[in-house]
Amino acid sequence: MPILSVKDFSIHFYTPKGVRKAVDKVNLDLNKKEVIGIAGESGSGKSTLAMGIMRLITPPGKIVGGKVLFNNEDILSYDEDKFNKEIRWKKISMIFQGSMNGFTPVFKIGQQIEEVLEVHEYKGNFKERVNELLKMVELDPSVSDKYPHELSGGMRQRAFIAMALALNPEILICDEPTTALDVITQAKIINLLKTLKKELGLSIIFITHDLALLSEISDRLYIMYAGSIMESGYSLDLYKNPKHPYTQLLMDSIADINKDYIKGIPGFMPDLANLPKGCRFSDRCPYAMEICKQKEPELKRIEGDRYVSCWLY
């Protein structure tokens, strides 16, 4: 049984230009001690999906349907107070793309981590826990006496990971955690996340547009486009043999150090308030057929753990 299961999850944004379906009936499963990757271009709805799971969607956005099952219990039906007390940060926590800039500049790192412990009513010695956490992310305990500006970007991102782990969550959502960092620091953060996953038995949802980076860390992959999952499967399989035309084009558009070319994907993502009638990728797809413009394909299993939403299969 998966630890987290998202069923027919939809998030809409009510804008003056119409209802934008940022997340449109998404299904995904996260197993215990597993890393799943969610990949897609910007605007595909990957971050909104993560924010939706954490219930951090603010107006004009609204969760309009679906279920989020945590250990088979629908946490979407919890009221805000209960969700805050039982789930947020305690069971599921999150790090963000700019989270190294998420610290208040006027308080010391240690104080800020202690504040999280205090708000969430942690029982035990705060100072000891902070030191333990900093050690976990391979930072010197003296960091707790420093102000954010005294640390480098990589160190601050580590400190934020420490803060995300403060209450021993079971699931960590990482939304582009290394995009703002340089490659060497990125490599170190990725290695740290791998270690933490092993040592703490964390389950991780890793969101990025960088497929090369995802190949490094994820067990399974979900490819997202215009609010919907186009393909999913075991990542090694998926890299070897991408099925959906969008996945194939996305793989070709990634610059990899072992490749001699990159290709673009012609065209643009459709307006989320005005999705085409058929497949949402049909107007950019080189293999589009008549049916693709008429009817939207469903995500169906084609082999093993591979699901594809395309009329070709």
Partner: peptide
């Protein structure tokens, strides 16, 4: 070494930095 590389055979392409 720090660049992630797509390698369908293995996940661990980043060496210890």
């Amino acid at each position: 070494e720090a660049y992630p590389k797509i390698n369908p055979e293995s996940k661990d392409t980043i060496k210890t930095i």
